[in-house]
Amino acid sequence: MPAHLKVLALVGFMLVVVATPREWFAAYAFFLAVLVTVGAVARVRPGWVLKRMVVEVPFVVFAVLMPFIAQGPRVDVLGLSLSESGLLSAWGLLAKGTLGVIAGLMLAATTTPQELVRGLERLRMPEQLVQIMAFMVRYLEVVTDEMRRMAVARASRGFVARNPLHWPVLARSVGALFIRSFERGERVHLAMVSRGYTGRMPR
């Protein structure tokens, strides 16, 4: 399936999910079933999805706090006085957020970054933005690799970051990483100019 259709499908699907009132519990079971079917058809491994769902954790914490801090009539659950509307909001947040993460991961699992960039280009994303994104995606590995080498270099000199006193060391690495990335950008640009680049990518 072409990437641009997948992106459109994802946006459409999530808009429907977000617009669905949170009291329609059956609808959410249906949404989840749709995602599970997609995952099964695309042979996405459940373990892969579960591992990447940790990005959601901060908001799970927020949702769990919701019943305690929201207003309105309260109910007693297991001896705790909780807000009814807060419970409902927490459910809504968790359900929609989780569906969003799973749906996003379905796209991520079945699309390479290059396909995605081409898909966004077909969706008429501004050309400059597509180019920037293409460069970012292309050099992401290079830059993170550079960062990893710095981490190895620090570690091999016995450095372990334990508390804020060690921040200057890490921040200097951030600075070095910026200089290296920026200079690499300049080199890439010069290399492109010398090959006839005028601001547009050849097709």
């Binding site: 460069f135 960062m147 951030v174 890439v188 640009h189 680049y197 005028t198």
Partner: peptide, 23 residues
């Protein structure tokens, strides 16, 4: 015309920086 390569590399830098954990 440096926009694409430079902004792209800086974006990659921002992304990588967000991965550094400050204890």
């Amino acid at each position: 015309d440096k926009t694409a390569p430079l902004a792209g590399l800086v974006a990659a830098f921002v992304f990588a920086t967000q991965m550094i954990n400050f204890p």
